[in-house]
């Protein structure tokens, strides 16, 4: 378009009829007002997108802190076990659990989440870690990856391999790669095995004073249907100093206490 013609059009545009010009400006004003109203919504949407990508910086989804169970923290229904799970098999797992405690082995999932001492949760940029004072490896929950390692080469562990993503303010954790070592009995019945699959949902409630964790275990060799239970942890003051649950398997007095039958009180 020739330059002169463009100048002419620009110059001539405001010279239309006054009412038409006013209507156009009214529309323009409305568009501007709508834009101003929409911008904060757009900004919030942008923030949500960041959260759903696996990282969240907002206060409502920062799980960092010390968290403790209380007397009213557990909601554990009875698990529906497969008919083939016998009392003898359950007893064998309980004996193995006792062996784990007696010999100071790492307890693993889910026992470490039931620690009497506060859990320390640290939310880093690429992983969230859960530290229990009960003898156990730390739980590493990776938020920077969307798939588990190749299970044909993965060395299974008591805590398995955990990956997670955010759905709004809820952290969804997916864990596979378990072994059958450590303390394997599950709250409500059943036990952890190499074929176990755990899904967890972490959500801050009560204005961040509590952390609700819902566990759903699935295992084609153990459960008739997925077994779900829930804990509510209470936030402990940040000034808490984590302690160390030192365990000596050669402590004979401790070993005797754990393995003997207590004498009745006379």
């Amino acid at each position: 378009m020739p330059h002169d013609r463009r100048k002419h059009m620009i110059r001539s545009a405001p010279r239309g009829s006054a009412s038409a010009c006013f209507s156009e400006r009214l529309v323009l004003a409305l568009i501007l007002i709508m834009s101003m109203l929409m911008l904060p919504i757009a900004a919030r949407a942008q923030s949500s997108t960041t959260s759903s990508a696996g990282q969240s910086n907002s206060e409502t989804s920062n799980l960092t802190g010390f968290w403790a169970l209380r007397f009213d923290s557990e909601n554990i229904p009875k698990a529906s076990l497969l008919p083939g799970i016998t009392a003898k098999e359950i007893e064998a797992h309980q004996q193995k659990d006792l062996h784990t405690i007696r010999w100071c082995q790492y307890v693993g999932m889910p026992f470490l989440m039931e620690s009497h001492a506060p859990l320390d949760i640290l939310q880093g940029d690429t992983q969230i870690v859960i530290i229990s004072e009960t003898p156990s490896a730390v739980r590493h929950i990776y938020t920077d990856r969307t798939s588990h390692p190749d299970m044909t080469t993965f060395d299974p562990g008591r805590n398995g391999n955990s990956i997670a993503h955010w759905e709004g303010d809820t952290l969804i954790v997916d864990t596979v790669g378990f072994n059958d070592q450590g303390y394997t009995s599950l709250p409500g019945g059943g036990f952890r095995t190499p074929t176990s699959h755990l899904k967890e949902r972490y959500r801050l409630i009560q204005d961040g004073k509590q952390l609700e964790v819902t566990f759903t275990w699935d295992d084609p060799k153990v459960f008739a249907k997925p077994h779900t239970y829930s804990y509510r942890y209470y936030r402990v003051p940040r000034s808490y100093n984590a302690e160390e649950d030192f365990c000596d398997s050669n402590d004979q007095d401790r070993a005797h206490f754990l393995t003997s039958v207590p004498a009745p009180v006379k």
């Binding site: 062996h99 100071c104 082995q105 790492y106 490896a137 590493h140 060395d155 562990g157 805590n159």
Partner: peptide, 11 residues
Amino acid sequence: TYAFEDSCDAG
């Protein structure tokens, strides 16, 4: 990189 788990059984 991902973490491995130590396993120690004094028994």
